[in-house]
Design a binder for these strands. Structure first.
Length: 289
DNA sequence: AGCCAGGACAAGT
DNA sequence: ACTTGTCATGGC
């Protein structure tokens, strides 16, 4: 029976939370869904909105640094998807595929990747970040996003900057965005910024779309947003866990483990989570080479 | 030196 | 509807 996390202590530095299930800060923030966190000595730290926060798992307890009890309840519980029953997700993912050889792959992916939570990230930041991600690698994506923030974002602390809003990016202009290392993606980022800054309802209409197809079609009116960037944006920024982003890693997974095909719709609303498990699993398997 | 990275576009079949 | 060349950049 699923029940929500419980705040068991609050200090000036943060909160201590119990009943967080299998949640792994390490896996969650290292699985390629976000680009503004780094891990040091078992503690992940990064910028969310206008604050630097940190998360650390110690036994059954989760420590959330620079977060108040009210903020945790009102925002971070949802941000971390700790309000969703991932034990049920895990068993659904492990049993969704009818062919036993396929199910065996999924059980192994769940075993390795369980603990990941799909974050509910800020929509504009997610859209912009995944435009940067195209034909790029994760370390360099982080570097470019960091440059965008340091150059255009509001200063929120010692060396810390918020993600710049769409209007700021739009006003900065394509040349400036290009110069921050975005390369051929600069006009795409500008077009995304134009959509968001000049149409205050754009992201809301994507969020309100009543089918995946409608949300996807609307997002893809932005130049530079194709099926993959759209799927990642919907999954990580719009809580659409039915999205199944197909990138080079997942293509590799499909031909390596599912030579007879993979119907990801069998995962239903957990498709995006299954995808993330497979993505993390494959990268984990190939660790060190 | 060439290939790859959480791809998408435009032009050509 | 499906294939191909091209787009910056850095790490290996």
């Amino acid at each position: 029976m699923f029940s929500l996390p419980v705040i068991v202590d609050e200090t000036k530095d943060g909160v201590t939370v119990s009943n967080v299930g299998t949640f792994s800060p390490h896996k969650t923030f290292d699985c390629g869904q976000c680009f503004r966190f780094s891990e040091t000595d078992g503690t992940v730290s990064g910028i969310v909105g206008k604050k630097r926060v940190s998360f650390r798992r110690d036994g059954d307890l989760l420590y959330a640094g620079n977060v108040t009890a009210d903020e945790f309840s009102a925002y971070f519980m949802h941000y971390l998807s700790l309000d969703r029953d991932y034990d049920s997700v895990d068993s659904a993912v492990a049993t969704a595929l009818p062919r036993e050889s396929d199910a065996a792959v999924m059980r192994e992916a769940v075993r390795v990747s369980s603990g990941i939570r799909i974050l509910r990230q800020e929509k504009w930041e997610t859209l912009c970040s995944f435009i940067v991600s195209q034909n790029n690698n994760i370390p360099r994506i982080k570097k470019i996003v960091s440059a965008l923030c340091a150059s255009l974002g509001e200063r929120i602390g010692d060396g810390d900057y918020a993600f710049p809003d769409a209007k700021t990016v739009l006003d900065a202009g394509e040349e400036k965005i290009f110069s921050l290392g975005t390369g051929f993606r600069a006009p795409y980022i500008i077009d995304a910024a134009r959509h968001v800054a000049e149409d205050g309802t754009f992201l809301d209409r994507v969020a309100a779309a009543d089918s995946y197809e409608d949300a996807d079609a609307l997002l893809r009116t932005v130049k530079g947003v194709g099926p993959k960037v759209s799927a990642c944006t919907l999954l990580f920024g719009f809580s659409r866990t039915d999205a199944f982003p197909i990138d080079v890693w997942i293509k590799r997974v499909m031909e390596k483990y599912f030579p007879d095909g993979l119907d990801y719709n069998l995962f239903g609303d957990a498709a995006g989570i299954a995808q993330q498990y497979l993505f993390y699993y494959e990268r984990y398997v190939n660790e060190g080479k």
